[in-house]
C-alpha cells in the first residue's frame, strides 16, 4: 500500500493472452482468445453465461493450463504455472462465489493475504517472539491500512462466516489487496449486491486503481458498471472473442448486441 501514485497512467502491456484455447474433454471452453491488459488500466471481460470468462481468469492465474496458445506476463511467456507461483509474481484474485476462510476472523483472513511476504521460519514461529513478532506486527500494520481503506474496522475480529454478503465480498477484496498485487483479477465483484453495495464496490475498485496504480481485470454482468469503470472491454461468446475495445465501441458493436439480445428473426 505504499505505491500511491498521483495520476492514472496507462503504461505498457502487462499481460498478453495469445491464441489461448482450453478444452475439457469435448467441451471447448475457450477457442483462440487473444487480448492484452496494459499496466494501470481497468480491463473488463464480459459475455453471456458460459462464455468462458471465469475459465479465462483461471488460465491467467495458473489454475487451468491452456491447451494451445500462450500467456505472457511482464513480457515473459509463462510455462505451466501453479497458482502459488502466479501469486508470487503479483497476481491476486477474488472469486465469483465467495472463497473466504469461514472459520477465521476478518483480520486473519486479510493477514493470509500477506503470507507470501512473511519469511520467518519455523523456529521463530514456535517462539512467536523476537523477529517473528516484529514481522507479525509489521504486516499487521499493512493489513490495518487495508482495513482502513475498505472501512471495515468494526468487523476486524468478527468471524467472516457471520458477516453479511456484501461485507464478505469486501473482505475478500481486502485479502487480495493485502498481497499488494500488480494485477488484480476480480470475478464478478458485484454479483448479488444491491445498488448501494455496488456503488461502494465501484468506488473501492476505482480507488485501488487510482491510489495504488493496480492493474485490474474484472468480470462483471452489470453492464452499467462495466461501461462506467472500465477502460477497455473484451467480449467473449461461446469461448471466442467477438469484440474488444473501449466501452463505447463495444456497446455499439452489432455482434455484441446480437450476443446479448439475440438476432432479430430468431
Amino acid at each position: 500500500m505504499t505505491r500511491a501514485t498521483a495520476s492514472r497512467q496507462i503504461g505498457d502491456t502487462l499481460l498478453k493472452v495469445d491464441g489461448v484455447s482450453l478444452g475439457f474433454g469435448g467441451v471447448k471452453a475457450l477457442t483462440d482468445v487473444s487480448f492484452d491488459v496494459r499496466k494501470g488500466e481497468i480491463r473488463a471481460i464480459i459475455g453471456p453465461n458460459g462464455a468462458g470468462k471465469s475459465s479465462m481468469l483461471n488460465c491467467i492465474n495458473g489454475f487451468y493450463h491452456p491447451s494451445h496458445g500462450s500467456i505472457s506476463y511482464k513480457g515473459i511467456v509463462r510455462g505451466a504455472m501453479r497458482p502459488h507461483e502466479a501469486a508470487k509474481n503479483g497476481i491476486a484474485r477474488t472469486f465469483q462465489n465467495i472463497a473466504l476462510f469461514k472459520g477465521m476472523s476478518t483480520l486473519d483472513n486479510i493477514m493470509t493475504g500477506r503470507l507470501l511476504k512473511m519469511k520467518r521460519g519455523f523456529f521463530w514461529q514456535c517462539l512467536h517472539w523476537g523477529p517473528a513478532r516484529a514481522e507479525e506486527i509489521e504486516h499487521r500494520e499493512v493489513v490495518e491500512r487495508v482495513i482502513d481503506f475498505l472501512e471495515i474496522q468494526a468487523i476486524r475480529k468478527t468471524p467472516v462466516g457471520r458477516l453479511p454478503y456484501g461485507l464478505q465480498k469486501r473482505v475478500e477484496l481486502g485479502r487480495a489487496l493485502a498481497a499488494e498485487p500488480e494485477l488484480l483479477l476480480l470475478d464478478e465483484p458485484m454479483a448479488g449486491m444491491n445498488l448501494e453495495e455496488k456503488e461502494d464496490m465501484c468506488r473501492f475498485i476505482l480507488d485501488v486503481n487510482e491510489q495504488f496504480g493496480t492493474t485490474i481485470a474484472l468480470i462483471e454482468h452489470d453492464m452499467g458498471v462495466v461501461m462506467d469503470i472500465s477502460d477497455r472491454v473484451v467480449v467473449l461468446e461461446y469461448g471466442r472473442k467477438i469484440a474488444d475495445g473501449t466501452p463505447d465501441a463495444v456497446k455499439s458493436d452489432p455482434k455484441v448486441i446480437e450476443a446479448y439480445l439475440g438476432t432479430g428473426h430468431a
Binding site: N61, F63, R82, P83, H84, A86, A87, K88, A92, R93, F95, A99, L100, F101, K102, G103, M104, D108, M111, T112, G113, L115, L116, R175, A179
Partner: peptide, 17 residues
C-alpha cells in the same frame, strides 16, 4: 493461518500462494 486457510478453502488458499 496457512493451516486454517487449507482447512477452510483449499483452492482459495492455493491461489493466495
Amino acid at each position: 493461518r496457512a493451516w486454517m486457510a487449507i482447512r477452510d478453502m483449499d483452492i482459495a488458499a492455493e491461489i493466495i500462494g
